[in-house]
Design a protein around this nucleic acid. Structure first.
Lengths: 153, 153
DNA sequence: CAAGATTGAGTCATCAATCTTA
DNA sequence: TAAGATTGATGACTCAATCTTG
């Protein structure tokens, strides 16, 4: 029997799964008094970057945040001394966000809750094959968008 | 060679792909002067429901919206006469949202833009196998959350 | 005058409190 | 007194305008 593929099946599944899982994980982090997904996301990218710093621009590209949103979140993190702003020595227009020691500590503290949440509310329900298909397939979607990303978002 | 699976690879791909694709599609709908994703989502579910109506509660469960958000969106749709509120004959506490003829027309008008957007910004980058893995895998995530969903969200 | 970044003003979404009926 | 739904107040997010440097 030839099975016809629902043209919006994958899309709707993405929307719903995202909504449900994010909500559940955020809720759990809040109850455990752990930093939010947005903060975690930013700290994670900064920590993984060379010299543990990124231009605001590049941070927005890697993180799940718009460029203006990155400014706000970095300001919040700066207020809490988890991140510091540094002038870019190579380009006076640019600002670098750099994770602090306290930021790395916050990241380490949050990590187990975060990993547990992802597993409990997401990974647990996926086979290894499905996880791989999701990672590889969606990475292509991400690459395409990052490539022809309108300079301003 | 045994390949180790990145425990958050699929999750991060989901977050990023969602963010990028939703942004791009919303943008396109806006420029084409077509109803938003939220409106489309609600109208689609109502149109597919028996008698083309759903309790607010059930609508929130099917759509990508919180229960309070559904109230707001239905009010918007009602103002634009795309949806009407009807008292539930079986339960005086409940409200039914029912799609109107104008609502169905709006849905038909929006559909090609919507389908095109999903294809251009999402499906296009996925193989059939990947689409199936995403649909099936994420559906399990959705089912799990819908099952043990806390009555109030 | 374009690129990088920030910010004021406004919109969108959520939470807690409220109202109504079972 | 609990379930269904709505709403007032608040916080999160975005857009357009602005500032600064290349």
């Amino acid at each position: 029997v030839t099975q016809t593929l629902d043209p919006i099946g994958a899309w709707r599944a993405l929307l719903l799964a995202h909504s449900r899982a994010v909500r559940a994980i955020e809720q759990e982090l809040l109850e455990a008094d752990v930093i939010s997904l947005a903060w975690y996301d930013v700290l994670l990218e900064l920590n993984a970057a060379p010299d543990r710093e990124l231009r605001m621009q590049d941070l927005a590209l890697r993180a799940v945040l718009s460029r203006t949103r990155v400014s706000r979140v970095v300001t919040e993190l700066e207020t809490n001394e988890l991140v510091m702003r540094v002038a870019d020595p190579n380009d006076g227009r640019a600002t670098l966000a750099r994770i602090t020691a306290a930021g790395r500590a916050a990241l380490r503290k949050a990590a187990p809750f975060y990993l547990r949440g992802i597993d409990q509310h997401f990974n647990q329900y996926l086979t290894v094959t499905q996880q791989e298909a999701i990672t590889n397939g969606l990475q292509r979607v991400i690459n395409a968008h990052n490539a022809d990303l309108d300079p301003r978002r």
